[in-house]
Design a protein around this nucleic acid. Structure first.
Length: 153
DNA sequence: GCCAACGTTGGC
DNA sequence: GCCAACGTTGGC
């Protein structure tokens, strides 16, 4: 089973939104990067673990645990001219962008970015690498276990 | 608001 | 196919 870290701006979709969502599941929309899309399309499997990360906010960090719940499908926001994620170059015949369902496992304490940077066992995490901008990154087994240990199970 | 770093675009 | 210009990300 693979593991992933998925960034979300809490203004758009926070861990509390996931807690409150029907079936505590949300379609992950708005991915507009090919590498991240390819992770969804080619590598993610239902049951994979997800670290739900809050970005671009006052206190960035891991805010909860989730899992991939399937539901890979074209992201409808790419067809909506009113959406900030509208992509005029995408067509319904050949959609460019995909979404996948993410289901809550549990909300956790906030494992802050500062704490992550201070944790030697997390130093390899891709989200911490200089210049990283990918909104979806793979998480190794060791990194996953280390995060769970920090969160106190 | 700043700015480093990166991905994408488009002219050639 | 190169690469400069541009737009975006995201922490601070």
């Amino acid at each position: 089973m693979a593991h992933w870290l998925m960034k979300s701006e809490p203004d758009e979709a926070s861990i509390d939104d996931l807690v409150a969502a029907p079936h505590q599941t949300l379609p992950w929309t708005g991915v507009r990067n090919y590498q991240a899309r390819n992770f969804m399309r080619d590598a993610m499997r239902p049951g994979d673990g997800v670290l739900f990360y809050h970005s671009s906010c006052a206190e960035p960090g891991i805010a909860g645990l989730a899992r991939i719940a399937g539901g890979l499908a074209p992201d409808p926001t790419q067809f909506d001219p009113a959406s900030p994620y509208f992509d005029p170059k995408s067509t319904r015949e050949a959609p460019r962008w995909l979404q996948i369902d993410v289901a809550l496992e549990r909300k956790t304490r906030l494992l802050t970015l500062a704490e992550m940077r201070d944790a030697p066992e997390l130093a390899t995490m891709r989200v911490l690498q200089r210049g990283n901008r990918l909104s979806i990154t793979p998480v190794s087994d060791d990194e996953w276990r280390a995060v769970l240990r920090r969160l106190g199970r």
